[in-house]
Amino acid sequence: YCPACDKSFKTEKAMKNHEKSKKHR
Score class of each variant (00 low, 15 high):
H18R: 04
K20T: 11
K23I: 05
N17Y: 09
K22R: 09
E12W: 08
E19A: 12
S8D: 06
A4K: 14
K22A: 10
F9K: 06
A4Q: 11
K10Y: 01
H24T: 09
R25A: 15
S21N: 08
K10I: 00
K22L: 06
P3E: 15
C2M: 01
H18V: 05
A4V: 13
H24E: 10
H18T: 07
E12N: 14
T11N: 01
K7F: 00
S8C: 01
K13G: 14
K22T: 07
P3M: 14
E19H: 08
K16W: 02
K20Y: 06
A4T: 15
E19Q: 13
P3F: 15
C5T: 02
K23N: 04
H24A: 09
K13N: 06
S8A: 12
A4G: 14
A4I: 15
S8Q: 11
S21E: 08
K13E: 13
Y1D: 15
F9L: 09
P3V: 14
K7G: 02
N17I: 10
K23R: 08
C2N: 15
A4D: 14
D6M: 01
K20M: 10
H24F: 02
F9H: 02
C5K: 02
A14Q: 03
F9P: 08
C5W: 00
K23D: 13
K10A: 08
C2A: 00
K13M: 13
H24N: 11
K16P: 03
C5Y: 02
D6Q: 05
P3T: 14
A4F: 13
Y1H: 04
M15D: 13
C2R: 00
C5D: 03
D6G: 07
K20I: 09
K13P: 11
C2I: 07
D6P: 00
K7M: 03
K13Q: 14
S8R: 07
C2L: 03
K23S: 09
N17Q: 15
D6R: 09
E12I: 08
K20F: 07
K10P: 10
C5R: 01
K16A: 05
P3L: 13
D6S: 06
M15I: 04
K20G: 10
K10H: 01
A14G: 11
K20W: 03
K22G: 10
R25D: 15
R25T: 14
A14I: 08
H24G: 10
E12R: 09
K7V: 01
A14T: 11
A14S: 13
H24K: 05
E19K: 13
K7D: 01
A4E: 13
M15A: 07
T11M: 02
H24I: 04
K20P: 11
R25Y: 02
E12Y: 07
E12K: 15
M15E: 05
D6C: 03
K23T: 08
P3R: 15
N17K: 11
H18N: 04
K16I: 04
T11Q: 04
F9R: 02
K22P: 11
Y1T: 15
M15V: 06
N17H: 13
K13V: 13
K22Y: 08
K23E: 08
E12Q: 14
K16D: 02
S8V: 02
K13D: 13
M15S: 07
A4L: 14
K22S: 11
K16M: 02
D6K: 15
K7E: 02
K13I: 13
H24P: 12
K20N: 06
P3I: 15
Y1F: 07
N17F: 12
K23G: 12
H24R: 01
A14Y: 11
P3A: 13
C5S: 04
K16T: 09
K23M: 10
E19Y: 12
S8M: 01
E19D: 15
A4N: 15
M15W: 02
C5V: 02
K20L: 09
D6V: 03
K13L: 10
Y1R: 14
N17L: 11
E19M: 14
K10S: 06
K13A: 11
M15F: 11
R25I: 08
F9M: 03
N17A: 12
F9T: 09
K20E: 13
K20R: 10
T11D: 04
Y1V: 15
C5P: 01
F9C: 04
C5E: 05
R25S: 12
K10E: 14
K10G: 04
H18I: 05
K7W: 00
M15T: 08
T11S: 13
K22M: 04
H24L: 05
R25P: 12
S21C: 05
R25L: 13
K20Q: 05
R25W: 06
C5N: 03
T11L: 01
F9A: 05
N17P: 05
A14H: 04
K7T: 09
R25N: 13
C5L: 00
K23F: 04
A4H: 14
D6A: 10
A4C: 08
E12C: 04
S8L: 00
T11V: 00
N17E: 08
Y1S: 15
K7L: 06
H24D: 05
K23V: 06
K16C: 03
K13T: 14
F9N: 08
Y1Q: 15
A14P: 07
H24S: 07
Y1A: 10
E19V: 11
Y1C: 02
K22W: 01
T11I: 00
H24V: 08
F9V: 09
K16R: 09
K22I: 05
N17G: 11
H24C: 13
